[in-house]
Amino acid sequence: MLSKSQARAFFLGGTLVTFLAFIGLTVYSFMPSNDQSNHHLIDEQVIRGKHLWETNNCMGCHSLMGEGGYYAPELTKVVDRKGEPMIKAILQSPVIWAPNGRKMGPYEMSEEDSEAMVAFFKWVGQIDLNGFDRVVSPLAKDKANK
């Protein structure tokens, strides 16, 4: 029968081994040769867009790469689906945007900020998401196949 010290050894040993494996896999994932995000394409515009994405808590309603609020559309391939002019128009709108009933506040972004947001979305849209991009945005896939 298992003793208490054996149970403790199982806990400590198992934790140590899996933790080390986890750290190793993390390092492996971020090796430049394994990059799937086009990290080299991140410029000041993309960083500014990410900052705006966070400080306005866009993720509270929308989702990006499948992560977010599930209340408003997924935006991984939004530039492919909606195009730059429409995205900028929505972000710069002085009135509530509610094409399907659900409301998005008037963000009244400047031209520079909305361009940064578009740059951020374009960068996200090029990430290799292991196939998820094709499932989450069939419209983008259809467009790509035409």
């Binding site: 149970a7 934790t15 933790f19 986890f22 994932s29 799937q36 790469m65 998401l129 292991n130 998820f132």
Partner: peptide, 29 residues
């Protein structure tokens, strides 16, 4: 001890289920 051992044994590397489709290596699948 056995329960918390099982928790960490599965849970630490189980973090990988959040990494399937966020732009990191396929090894997490």
């Amino acid at each position: 001890y056995v329960i918390v051992g099982l928790t960490f044994l599965s849970g630490i590397l189980g973090t990988g289920h959040h990494y399937y489709y966020i732009g990191v290596n396929k090894i997490w699948l």
